[in-house]
């Protein structure tokens, strides 16, 4: 019996790897949930691409200010000590290497850390990229949070991405419902798995070469 992580457990797992003092950008969708699991007593600075540092939780219903929103265009609040800035500065924070960690969703991640998360490339779909490419290559560390398998059972951790790329060699960690992976120039390794899963199971499910994680030195890119 495999004890697959639910989305809350995945978000809590990502949150546990975010240290005090980190400047963090959470992508729209699943990664937004990580904020719910960051301990209040830990000073972690959430950045939102639309010009906000020190982002707080959603306001109570009826107290929304639609000039205070996050990247997903939801109403948010500003923590004491927070600040506002324009788009030039916001993306300088990313490209300039000032953001410590960004957490993004993904369609596919390759074992070398290539990311595909902005476009399926299907005919008839309207592409939209937003800040994904800037975040992926700009943040000091890019984490991906995703379910490991598609609804059809295909692995989203792949040898080579088949969807259009967001960035090359930019992802260092992948947090999924079944395992946490390190990816990079030396390939993919497994940091941990949920109960009931073996490395061999995981190799079969993903179809990619996987080693056991042997510490941070290995994952340096």
């Amino acid at each position: 019996m495999i004890n697959r992580f639910n989305r809350d457990q995945m978000a809590a797992r990502v949150a546990s790897d975010i240290p005090e003092g980190a400047y963090v950008n959470l992508g729209i969708g699943l990664p937004t949930m990580v904020a719910n699991f960051l301990p209040q007593e830990r000073d972690i600075f959430l950045q939102s691409e639309n010009g906000l540092l020190g982002m707080g939780p959603q306001p109570p219903a009826g107290e929304e200010d639609w000039e205070l929103i996050n990247a997903g265009k939801q109403a948010v609040t500003l923590r004491q000590g927070g600040s506002y800035f324009h788009h030039g500065d916001s993306f300088a924070m990313m490209r300039g290497g000032h953001i410590d960690i960004c957490v993004l969703g993904a369609f596919q991640v390759s074992i070398r850390g290539d990311l595909a998360n902005w476009h399926t490339g299907e005919a008839g779909t309207i592409p939209a990229v937003g800040g994904a490419m800037d975040l992926a290559v700009g943040a000091k560390q890019t984490f991906v949070m995703m379910e490991l398998l598609t609804k059809q059972g295909d692995s989203k951790l792949v040898e080579t991405c088949t969807y259009p790329l967001t960035g090359l060699s930019c992802v260092s960690r992948i947090y999924t419902d079944l395992a946490v992976f390190s990816v990079g120039s030396t390939g993919a390794s497994v940091i941990e798995m949920v109960d009931g899963l073996s490395l061999d199971n995981l190799r079969k499910l993903t179809g990619v070469p996987l080693s056991e994680f042997r510490g941070e030195a290995e994952s340096r890119q």
Partner: peptide
């Protein structure tokens, strides 16, 4: 379609009188 940070940087470059910018964003993508 322009990545958001490139959009901001290209707009800023125009305002700042720069002839072009070299940006890491989008490298290797379509």
């Amino acid at each position: 379609l322009v990545p958001q940070g490139n959009l901001a940087a290209r707009i800023h470059a125009a305002g700042a009188g720069l002839g072009a910018i070299f940006t890491p964003t989008g490298f290797g993508t379509t």
